[in-house]
Design a protein around this nucleic acid. Structure first.
Lengths: 126, 126, 126, 126
DNA sequence: GTGGTCTAGACCACC
DNA sequence: GTGGTCTAGACCACG
């Protein structure tokens, strides 16, 4: 369920974990209500410090994606999240813009970018 | 030609500068061979330390997008880049994946993402 | 493990540090996986500014010889390098050519150059 | 007789010119007594500033390799140079050491380095 | 004037 | 404690 962490990557370890959970939820791989591993267990599995996993879970809780019940563990929220309306669209546009820039510099035409996205979407739905 | 820096943004200042130049080249706003401002001048213009601009220029040079001639200044390369084929496509796919994740969590359907990209592409071509 | 820096040498300090590490790895004096001193500590030891050591470490990382883990430190890569095949041989030939030129102008015959190299090789292997 | 200058190279232009002359003399391509082009002519040919060529000629004169006669031009000295004994051997050893380091990191065995040098020596003598 | 390097100190995020 | 970034100023070599 979790893929290995890259400790040399530029994005901090705790955020790599956050992304993994968010991706899992967005793609449906992790269903609402699902119990997450204890931060200690996940730390062992990912070969990182327990505090680091804890920080990721805290971040997810702050984002309203995860709920922690004392003595029970951490769970994906049933109604995962209220999409913050405007701000999020802006973020979306910015990521899209970066994608376009990268594509241009790599010499990939627009149509190829669109096809790439369609392919990824199909892949995650299957 | 350069837009203001956001010194409190999460992405480091030097990288904001890198992105501005890359975006400019990708969109055609900065033509090949164009001389960039001296790193000192740009530092004044952007209200940052000269070393910070220097670091951005160094990075761009390492990426093969910019060429520096001592005593002359820095210039956009004539043939801006030998696209590192595999590696870059992987990067592209990863950015695309992040875009999809963000869209899903924001509740935006696939078609809306595709339309957003098309709109941005049109906008930059006009 | 590190020898003193010559701050008045023509070759920049940060590159002297790069060379020391490269030499150490090439000769086997610094084994793969070895942790390097923190750039602050090494700065104290070599009596240079921390940023200068940092610049050297960054360069080594770009060369694929060193791997940096945030909050952990910098380490010699386990499989130190994927030798960039062509480019590196060209560099080798160029250095060899400079050696020959220097030898000729110093009046040293070819055989003496060869013997010098053999002697250095023996010395480092012992 | 002169090969193009690389204005983006790390080694300064004037020194690239110095090297070209030194190499030419060492290999015999430029015979003693040979007249060098005027610094203005060479500047045109190499597409650099006249002052830069002048600086290279000055350097060569300081090294005792070139002699300038006012109104006549610059000439390679008849008895090109008194080899500064000790200092130069030390320099030689240092260059040899760098060659060995590069070779090791490129994975080239000692014998290959020796053969490379022999090949270059043959090449220049032919 | 331009880039190349270096310094001494600061603040922050991460582990 | 560790790396990551930034600053403000300095000096030098180059063109």
């Amino acid at each position: 369920m979790f893929v290995p962490i890259n400790p040399s990557a530029e994005v901090p370890i705790y955020r790599q974990i956050v992304h993994q959970v968010r991706d899992g939820v967005a793609s449906g791989a992790i269903p609402p209500g699902q119990k997450l591993p204890s931060h200690r267990d996940l730390a062992v599995q990912l070969v990182v410090a327990p505090l680091t996993v804890k920080k990721a879970y805290d971040e997810l809780e702050r984002q309203g994606l995860v709920e922690t019940r004392r003595g029970r563990g951490s769970f994906i929220c049933e109604r995962p999240l209220a999409p913050p309306p405007e701000e999020y669209r802006a973020q979306l546009a910015q990521t899209a813009r970066r994608l376009l820039t990268e594509a241009r510099l790599a010499g990939a035409p627009l149509e190829e970018v669109l096809e790439l996205i369609r392919a990824l979407a199909r892949e995650e739905n299957s």
